[in-house]
Amino acid sequence: MTFNTVQRARRKTAGMAAIIVAMGLGLAGCGPAPRASGINDPFEASNRKVHQFNKDVDQALFRADDRPSKPPGPIGNAIGNIGDNLGLPSMVVNALLQGRPEPAVKNTFRFFINSTLGLGGIFDPAGQSFSLPETETDFGETLHVWGVGEGAYIELPILGPSTERDTLGTVVDLIIDPLNALDPDPRLVAKTFRLGAKVIQRKRYSSTVDSILYGSADSYAQSRLLYLQNRRFELNGEETDDANVYDPYEDPALQ
């Protein structure tokens, strides 16, 4: 790739980012979408097929010998940490799009500290010594903050549980990632580490993921429920409408 095409690609990314920011400013007045409840899964039949495919892939990659998958070793952890660190610029962009300067500033400091003192993100001095743990976010959350509702539940091939809104978020995150502005070679290296971090994440939570995928009587229903509950918590915090809180002592079905 010549210098000119790189420049053009950068300009294209910048143009895309500008459009998204403009969209955000237009929507920002609406406030965040209300907390979703229940399970909206009109695509259950096809989702279940994708779920079986994902399980087969997981089995082949992580449990080929049918034994429980193992947690990552030191090298795996280093790769995961580098990949996680490289995810921070995108989180900074999203925090800004959400109009949340504080996590943007914190993640920026975290990125610079761990990229330098932390040797490219292998170590985590920002979290360990500077009280700057990662403030996780993504474009799915940005859409939520802009007032976009959750939509239907979708299980994506390889990527797993998602919703219509979060699927769109995943696509946009690929486009607006500041790493796209890197020259082709370092960009490829960076993206490879990002992918590596996803694999390591599967291994870090190996026993939890194993228990849901292989230990559950209906792993599709469990992963759907866990994903939706946890995602709603990430976006809206804990349930604050007491009317929606279940009280087994007042459940007529149990009396």
Partner: peptide, 24 residues
């Protein structure tokens, strides 16, 4: 009688799980 870890509600998750085991 209930634990909620990062939004994940034990009673709700276990009702789904035990329901699926019972269906089986």
């Amino acid at each position: 009688f209930n634990l909620i870890v990062e939004g994940v509600n034990m009673l709700a998750s276990e009702r789904a799980e035990i329901g699926a085991m019972l269906d089986r």
